[in-house]
Design a protein around this nucleic acid. Structure first.
Lengths: 258, 258
DNA sequence: CGACCGCTTGAGAACCTTCAAGCGGTGTGG
DNA sequence: CCACACCGCTTGAAGGTTCTCAAGCGGTCG
């Protein structure tokens, strides 16, 4: 017993769960910290990956889901034309790879944008564990559900008509994300290229660039390479939220049909 | 024992699991059919709802997820401007309400487009059941994961640049869906309005109308109100898949960064 | 039968894209 | 160590697709 507990705690220490900022949110860990027995089953040693590295590629076998502890990941697919289409950006606290559960193979590529620390979690073990520990099960479900909600929020962003609105919504999303991590909500570092943003928002690179300049000229932002300072959060939010239909016009409100 | 089994089987019969076309896919049922004990815990009597009815509304308490057995549902949110933004369409075999798991409240409204038979499934019971029955757990996970994949596919559609491509992809999606249900892949009934489609695809109503006319003039479709016959599936697929960048041009293929 | 609603069609305007060129930084080879 | 090339980003001009506004058509419901 004693020796087992010791071995296990070494594993937990290796993985650095004790210092992990997302302990409370981790699907494998409980609120009170990571129970060693859990870590032992589910955890693989955390990886440090660098800009340009791939976490996984399309049709790679699905074994792990990946918790981002630091850095940034982008997921993307290659279209028939050979062009790259960015699906999402993943920052600390996010889990990558949830779209592989059903098919058993990854549906996209995951590339590291910025030196990242990634915790692989064995999905089959996670499932087994969640049979015994209701808390783990609900965390897992919650994660999956959150992903769905996030996607729906993104659909709303893409539903925004103008490029300015999409960009504003995108920046605000990052701002809130940073804030939630305890970082500045106004000083954003964008780890992805303009081309990545363009693909993600379904815009041309040139448009992204122009919109950023326009927002800067308007005194809303201070853009310097990938460093964006939000100068007028209020106005940015107004842009993001206002739809073109805000004018007096027969509003297309949802009504019961007949 | 005997009497319990009998009561239970009555419940299962009430819910009509025996004749349900989606028995094999139902999160509550196993491959061999719906185990009565399961149905008893999880199932609520199936509802029949009509055009214009709401299954749930934003911020309604989350208790059930809903399996669509027949008919069609749309989910949408109301934007600040009062305008309606359609999030998704749900046809037989789909599950609605998965986005409420994490927050405990529904994130959108669900309106019936066409007389529908809906199976409410008690989510808390489903979780409890999935603790005991691994098969149920994996079905549930798979469903959540599939939803994520579906959303990503939709993001790709919206990433498609032209209105024609989006429309083609939308129609093909419906076509495949119908085919999977054992119905005709070429004779599609669209239960939603043009405005719904427009909102969903981030286009103007007029554009949706024009694109449909254009596709009809091109001999790809035969459009009659909400009834669409696909005359040239091959060409429709070509339109949907080809990206604008298909021409010889320095391809923006994903490459390792440096 | 009339009004309303959903859909279609037309014309003009607006926004975004495309094509083209130039700038600045980084990395590499001479 | 410097120069050059490459890459990402920006900026400009022209063109195109889609949006907006407006009007008309057809079906449905009261």
């Amino acid at each position: 017993m004693q020796s087992t507990a010791q071995i296990v705690s070494i594993r937990a220490r290796e993985s650095g769960c004790a210092e992990c900022a997302f302990r409370g949110e981790c699907v494998a860990c409980g609120e009170g910290g990571c129970a060693p027995a859990r870590a032992d089953e589910v955890m693989v040693a955390p990886k440090v990956l660098h800009r340009g590295d791939h976490l996984f590629r399309t049709s790679d076998d699905f074994q792990n889901i990946y918790m981002v502890r630091s850095g940034a990941i982008k997921t993307y697919v290659i279209l028939q034309s050979g062009e790259e289409q960015v699906i999402g950006f993943h920052t600390p606290g996010d889990i990558v790879g949830l779209d592989a559960i059903e098919s058993g193979g990854h549906m996209c590529n995951a590339m590291v944008l910025d030196t990242s620390c990634i915790c692989p979690l064995r999905f089959d073990q996670l499932c087994r564990l969640s049979q015994r520990v209701p808390d783990v099960q609900s965390r897992l479900m919650n994660r999956l559900s959150r992903k769905i909600v996030d996607h729906e929020a993104l659909l709303l962003i893409l539903g925004q008509k103008t490029a300015e609105q999409r960009m504003a919504a995108f920046l605000l999303h990052f701002s809130r994300r940073q804030h939630d991590l305890g970082l500045s909500a106004l000083d954003i570092n964008l780890p992805m290229s303009r081309a990545d943003i363009a693909s993600y928002l379904a815009l041309a690179v040139e448009t992204v660039s122009r919109v950023l300049t326009r927002l800067q000229d308007g005194g809303l932002l201070d853009v310097q390479r990938n460093r964006v300072r939000i100068l007028d959060l209020q106005r940015l939010a107004t842009i993001a939220e206002e739809t073109l239909e805000a004018r007096p016009r027969p509003s297309r409100v949802a009504r019961p049909l007949h």
